[in-house]
Design a protein around this nucleic acid. Structure first.
Lengths: 297, 297
DNA sequence: ATGGCTTGATAGAGACTTTCTATCAATATT
DNA sequence: AATATTGATAGAAAGTCTCTATCAAGCCAT
């Protein structure tokens, strides 16, 4: 029964019988049969088919909702029993927006000291993808923007505030300043994240708000790539202060606070809104609560 | 998997492998094997055995908690899909304390008019048994005292207030009065419910509070039996006003309000504290909310 | 239009699980 | 000590699941 519900979950995210089957580690006929059995048990069609997957029926959508819950609970149960047996162990799956990647270590390091048997898998994802992964039980927690764009059925723990800097060579225009305005930044050719990243959309909005326009010379979904370009001394970028610090500033590269307006975004931990949490997730939330005051200082 | 969890639930309430198996409609070896499989999957003993059932291990108790939740959710899912398919249908299982039995019809009658395909099963139980049945998913809702003794993880809807009357023959001592005190009632030989009923414990407390003692001439767990004795004109009883009204008063039998103190108990609907509720239960809660103002008037 | 490609359904065989009956060992009960 | 109760175990039969192979329907490109 529960494994059939997992089929539904896989189908929801893959939207393809074959791929979903592969994700579940079974063959396509097995998954097809599983879905069909569910449909027979419920006495209702759950999936609209027409020679290909065409989404769920209304009943299928309800079953999907329940499947998230029931499958999630059964996993949580397993994990909880495991923890009782041999302390916290297993794998913590986490996803963070690129600009927050640098601070993840501040969370994982004390966590690992307390719970050395927990393994980590950490993905770099967009804020939208993070919420999707959470919904589909593919990650245990995410680190993303808490405000700004709607987030779903999740609980959150604020971690720190993101302030923006112009990252540029000291001998470039504006390179000698102690602070710059968004209007000034709008005049500089920038390397920015791709528009599927919320960070980029935020920066675009700020630039537009200052009367400028966002026409980045270079886009990437990798902070490392952006930073390595800035390091050449020939490019500039806008980054959160925290990540600029982490990446390290050289003599020639400066991180200049951008004011007017002084834009601030809250970054935090998000976890599925479900009680009780898995022990592994609960420990992460505890760590985040402990850490938040230090980070915001 | 889910059926194995049902085994655990059955075992929790039957405390006996054989009986639990029968309750699940399987043989005892099947249930034993199912539990053993769960234990192997979890990697932990769930049940303490020593030639007989000796309760759950700590891990077993956690699994039991999860089983209630997961099994409950999977049933709710089924019911929800069924309702989507052919409107509200199925069986509403309800338990009420004896003194509330008379008012159940006020709930079931309008319910049935709105949802004619729902069938009812209604048990007369003690308040403690009701909470137990709720925990074990054996009933969908209960009607019982909301205050006075602790109730567990349930949501409630107040329905009406229970006021107490002396039910006695008009020509008996006190039979001509318009109101009596608890101290006076304490002098009369009474027919009361058995002490496993909360109603009896409440009345005992009230009598004791008035300096009297509870030494009922006759005890029974059936309101009908108590009432039939009072009807002979030779016995007296203490009953909630509502049930006395429902049973009907004759010329010779009077229901006399008992004052000093004016004791009042809230009776209400209790349902498992879980979101969302099954559609059948949700409809009952809606009905209860609608009804409460009328009843309390 | 037509041939090739993708997608999901179907059929049938083999492997695996489940569940039953029968029986046993251990403990309670008398 | 004899008997009854309780849950575990063994083995056989039934049932279920999952695989490979194949098919039919739609999609797409020429």
């Amino acid at each position: 029964m529960i494994d059939k519900l997992e089929f539904i979950l896989a189908l929801a995210r893959e939207k393809h019988f074959g791929h979903a089957a592969e994700a579940c580690g079974v063959t396509q006929p097995t998954l097809s049969a599983g879905v069909k059995q569910l449909e027979e048990q419920m006495g209702v069609l759950l999936v609209n088919r027409g020679s290909r997957f065409q989404g769920f029926t209304p009943e299928g959508q309800r079953v999907l909702e329940w499947a998230r819950r029931i499958v999630g609970d059964s996993r949580t149960m397993r994990e909880e029993i495991n923890s009782l047996k041999l302390g916290l162990s297993g794998r913590l799956r986490l996803a963070a927006i690129p600009t927050a990647l640098a601070m993840v270590a501040a969370l994982t390091t004390p966590y690992r000291e307390k719970h050395p048997n927990v393994q980590f898998t950490i993905y770099s994802r967009t804020s939208i993808e993070i919420l999707d992964l959470l919904d589909n039980l593919e990650i245990d927690a995410g680190i993303t923007y808490l405000e700004n764009e709607p987030i779903g059925r999740v609980s959150n723990v604020p971690l720190y505030l993101e302030h923006y800097c112009l990252l540029t060579s000291a001998d470039a225009p504006l390179g000698n300043r102690d602070s710059v305005t968004w209007a000034e930044v709008a005049q500089v050719p920038l390397c920015l994240l791709t528009p599927d990243m919320q960070n980029r959309r935020i920066i675009d909005r700020l630039l537009k708000g200052a009367g400028g326009e966002s026409r980045p010379t270079l886009e990437s979904d990798s902070m490392i790539l952006l930073y390595s370009h800035v390091r050449t001394g020939r490019w500039a970028s806008v980054m959160p202060a925290k990540i600029a610090d982490t990446l390290g500033l050289t003599d020639t590269i400066r991180a200049i606070p951008i004011t007017q307006p002084k834009a601030v975004q809250t970054i935090g931990l998000v976890v599925p809104q479900r009680e009780p949490m898995t022990p592994i997730t609960a420990a992460l939330v505890a760590e985040a609560r402990r850490l938040a005051p230090q980070l915001s200082g």
